Simulated assay, not measured.
Amino acid sequence: MSRPHCPRCSRPLDHCLCALIPRLSSRTRVLILQHPSEVRHALNTARLAALGLNNAELRVGEVFEDLPALLAQPGYRACLLFPGEQAQPLPQFARQLDGLPALLIVPDGTWRKARKLLHCNPLLATLPRVTLVDGLESRYRLRKAPMPGALSTIEAVVSALGVLEAPAQFDALLKPFEALIEGQIEAMGVETFRRNHQRG
């Protein structure tokens, strides 16, 4: 018999994170496009990010038929948070906004699944691509990053908003993420974590 889950944060009721999820306002609109394979992921940080931001939306799928309408929201300048040859550093894009808020499109999935989202939704390729600043390190201590600067979705959103809305900070979004990691370390046992995950 499966454990009862919270309908909001999708965590088991005895590990519900809702009390830690803030409700933060931002000028930037965040649109997270989540590959269906991520929905049942133990972390699902995209869901936590969408719940913690008033001006955010999480859409799940591979093909988004209404993407033209989602991107055509008046008063925003859209950009795609994804690396590539044509990608520009986010601070550079922020300087070009001329007072307009950004519409930040964030694909959520493994690198392979995120690339599939771009392939299945060619309209995304028409957007200016942006990347986070160099030198960022993930707080997700349970998994080795596949490449330098690789962050979880919620960390990427927090970092991006910190640039787009400086000097405002959005670190409060990370509280449920950090509680989730602590819970996983506790479940595996601190000794097991130290042996297998801590950097020597």
Rank of each mutant, 00 (worst) to 15 (best):
T131R: 08
E165A: 10
G84W: 07
A179S: 13
P74I: 00
E155Q: 11
G162F: 07
L70A: 15
V130L: 05
V133Q: 08
L81R: 05
C79M: 11
R112G: 09
R139S: 13
E57W: 02
L103N: 07
S152G: 12
L174N: 05
E137M: 04
T131V: 14
D108A: 03
V60Q: 09
P128A: 10
L161N: 05
E165C: 02
F170K: 06
R129L: 05
E137G: 00
V158P: 00
R129Y: 01
P89T: 06
A72E: 13
A94I: 04
V158C: 07
A49S: 14
P83F: 08
K175A: 15
N54E: 15
I154A: 03
L53A: 06
V157T: 10
G84A: 08
A168E: 14
L151D: 09
F93M: 01
L97M: 12
D66Y: 02
V158D: 01
D108P: 00
T153N: 03
F82P: 02
F170V: 09
R112Q: 15
Q96T: 12
A145M: 10
A150Y: 13
K116D: 14
L97A: 11
E85K: 13
L71P: 11
A72Y: 07
E137H: 03
L173Y: 04
P167R: 02
L136W: 08
F93V: 02
V133D: 06
P89H: 04
A87P: 10
A125Y: 09
L161T: 12
P101F: 03
L71E: 07
T131S: 06
D66L: 14
L58A: 07
A114R: 05
S152F: 02
R59N: 01
A114M: 11
T110V: 13
P91M: 04
L104W: 03
V106E: 06
L142N: 07
K116G: 08
L104E: 04
Q73M: 13
L100V: 00
Y140S: 05
F93Q: 00
P146V: 09
A172F: 10
G109S: 13
R139E: 15
P91E: 09
P128G: 07
P148F: 11
Q88M: 13
K113W: 12
R143M: 13
P107H: 03
V157H: 01
P107W: 02
I154D: 04
L118T: 03
Y76W: 12
A102I: 01
A56K: 08
P176V: 12
S159E: 15
L173N: 04
A78Q: 08
L142G: 12
T110H: 09
E57Y: 04
R95P: 01
R141E: 14
P101V: 01
G109Y: 09
L67V: 01
N121M: 04
V157C: 01
N121C: 05
D171N: 08
E137N: 03
A49C: 06
R112L: 14
L151V: 10
A179K: 10
A166Y: 06
F177V: 14
T131N: 00
L151A: 05
L81Q: 02
V106I: 13
L53M: 10
V157I: 15
L132Y: 03
P148M: 10
A94H: 08
A50C: 07
G109C: 12
E57F: 10
A125Q: 15
G61T: 01
P122L: 07
